[in-house]
Structures are given as C-alpha cells and as structure tokens.
C-alpha cells in the first residue's frame, strides 16, 4: 500500500510539472514576455477558475489554460491518494476507515467543485 501511494504522489507531481512547463514555454514563445503584474488583485477570468473552464481552455491549447490544468492536476494529486486509500480500506473490509476516508474525500470534493 505504501509503495503504491508513493507512486501516485510522485506521478501526480511529475505530470503537473510537465504540463506547467509546457504551458509556460508555449506562453513565452507566443508572447515573448510574461505580461501582467500581480500588484493589484483582479481575480482570474471565468475560464481559468472552474474545472470545466480549465479543461476546455487547455484542450483549445491556450497556454494559460495548460498551466492551469497542470495546477489542477497538482490539487487532484492528494485527492487521488485519498481515493486509492478508500479503495484499499474497502478491499480489507475496514469499515471504520472506509467511513473516515469517505468523510475526508467528501470535504475535498466539496471544496474543489462546489465552493466559491
């Protein structure tokens, strides 16, 4: 179980870092500079805020969408670890920890999908 969890975490970090690097290179080669300053808070546009917007933006090869997809993968990495643990506890019929893990998973999915 420990080895599989380690592999999931490492894979998640590598995939997201690769996406972020790809998006970054695309952005730089297209615009030459990294434009905006971050001194004033404006908030991100709608298409870089929620899961569907980010996936759509990345699929149409917008550089910032690809970077954001990489960051989304990173946020999803601990969630994948929790889902895997849930599967393992269920397999071992450890019902107490199935409940505990499900509570954590619900809180994580709630924050990622529903909360503004």
């Amino acid at each position: 179980m420990e080895n599989r969890i380690g592999a999931i975490l490492r894979a998640g970090v590598i995939v997201s870092a690769l996406l972020v690097i790809c998006g970054g290179i695309m952005y730089l080669s297209r615009y030459g500079t990294v434009g905006p300053a971050f001194a004033h808070f404006k908030g991100e546009p709608e298409r870089l805020k929620d899961i569907y917007g980010i996936i759509r933006s990345a699929l149409s090869l917008h550089p910032r969408g690809i970077i954001q997809l990489g960051l989304l993968c990173l946020i999803a990495t601990p969630i994948m670890r929790v889902i895997f643990s849930l599967g393992m506890y269920a397999k071992h019929k450890d019902s107490l920890y199935v409940v505990i893990t499900s509570i954590v998973l619900c809180l994580l999915l709630y924050s990622l999908i529903f909360v503004r």
Partner: peptide, 21 residues
C-alpha cells in the same frame, strides 16, 4: 498535501490562483 488541496480548490474557484505567477 490533503490539507492544502482542500483550500487550494476554493482559492482556484475564487480566481486567486494565477497560472503565470
């Protein structure tokens, strides 16, 4: 990781996570 993912999801939805930064 799990703790930070919980709040990062909210910050992403709120538009606090800028890809270029």
């Amino acid at each position: 990781g799990v703790t930070a993912a919980a709040s990062a999801g909210i910050y992403l939805n709120r538009g606090y996570i800028d890809p270029l930064l």
